[in-house]
Amino acid sequence: MSDKNPLPVAKGRAPALLLLVVASLVALPLLLPSATLATEILIFALAALACNLLLGYTGLLSFGQGIFFGVGAYGAALLMIHLQWGMFAALLGAAVFGAFLALLVGALAIRRTGIYFVMLTLAFSQMAYFLAYTLSGWTGGDNGLLDVPRPNIEIAGHVLVDLADPRHFYVFVAVLFLLIFAGALRVIRSPFGSTLLAIRENETRAAAIGYDTRHFKILVFMLSGAITGIAGALYAMLLHFAPLSNIDLMMSENILIMTIVGGTGSLFGSLLGAGAIVLLGDVLSELWPRWLMLLGVILILVVVFMRGGLWGGLAELGKRLLANRNADDKPQAKTKETL
């Protein structure tokens, strides 16, 4: 990296954003019918957050997120089943697997830009799916990997937290989500994050002032892969099952849709997008077997009328309400001055 002064660091109210996340984490299990559904939302919010680091902050549209999600699920499951690894060790293994696969995919894919980059990630996604299908001895093939355990949190053989209870598992995932969210927020508000934004806005100019853009893109790819791998591992533990669909192209598409609906360039939008898509799927699937058509219509409406996603739409609504309130207060102030 160049000796030049780093690009300006993004400013903002990080404490307020973290408080909003904490409030959301507390409210989810209270508002939803089950802790399992709330946990599923947080897991996919993690995956969408990881995708947002690529798409929203670096401008990389990747269809390879399902690769890292699936390898995290399979990797953690195999470590727990065959080596009896505990919860934290399995999650660490999933993060390492996800980061390593992201390194391989990213190192090859970023050699091209634009549509060619997208096509490369799409090709890698298809290759990963058929590889998982072929290695049925490891992945279970069409049947998936069954009997995935959910280890308790233990110290010296003493159980501290029984994660078999869905409420306890939700709290564990919520704490993990908060830690990762805070870490990602720290990253994007650092000089590293500002450099990613510079690459998104104008990669040629960022390279011209001395930044090794390939180096930064590989690093953010690995970070995204590690977080997505953790999300995949948690999903396998939630279901006690690692299906082949975890590594399917459809999984990459779902993660991308959650990211776009929530709002690209917004970490909290990742939580909104995951919540919206998971809840819509849960509600609409009971109303109509072809509910994906309705989901498509909703996605079109969001893209056309809420260009910043749900988070952008809420922010715009807040600005309008504040502007209307200020406009209503001004005549009153003038009346008082006249009197």
Rank of each mutant, 00 (worst) to 15 (best):
N202C: 10
L314G: 13
G56E: 04
M87C: 06
V302L: 03
F241H: 14
A156C: 07
I277G: 00
L279D: 13
A226E: 03
G86L: 01
G86S: 07
G93P: 06
P191Y: 09
A231K: 10
K319Q: 15
F221H: 04
T39N: 02
V302D: 01
A207N: 12
P243Y: 00
I209E: 08
V26L: 13
P151S: 04
H240V: 12
A206Y: 10
I227W: 05
A27S: 13
P331H: 00
L244K: 06
A77E: 11
I230C: 06
A242Q: 07
I298S: 01
L179V: 14
K319S: 11
T338R: 11
A77P: 01
A315M: 09
A276Q: 02
M1L: 11
L104M: 10
I153P: 03
Y170V: 03
D282A: 14
V304N: 05
L20Y: 02
V175S: 08
V71L: 12
V71P: 01
F181V: 07
Y133V: 12
G144H: 12
A132V: 05
D329Y: 03
G296P: 08
C51D: 04
L339Q: 08
G12L: 07
G144R: 07
K330V: 04
G106K: 03
Y211A: 00
K4E: 15
G296I: 00
L219I: 14
T204P: 07
A109Q: 10
S136W: 10
A38T: 04
G312W: 09
M87G: 04
N202Y: 00
S266N: 09
I81C: 02
E203A: 15
A123G: 15
F221E: 01
K4C: 12
E201R: 07
A208E: 10
E201P: 11
L160D: 11
I218W: 00
T335Y: 10
F117C: 11
A198N: 09
V22G: 13
G141P: 05
S194N: 12
A184C: 14
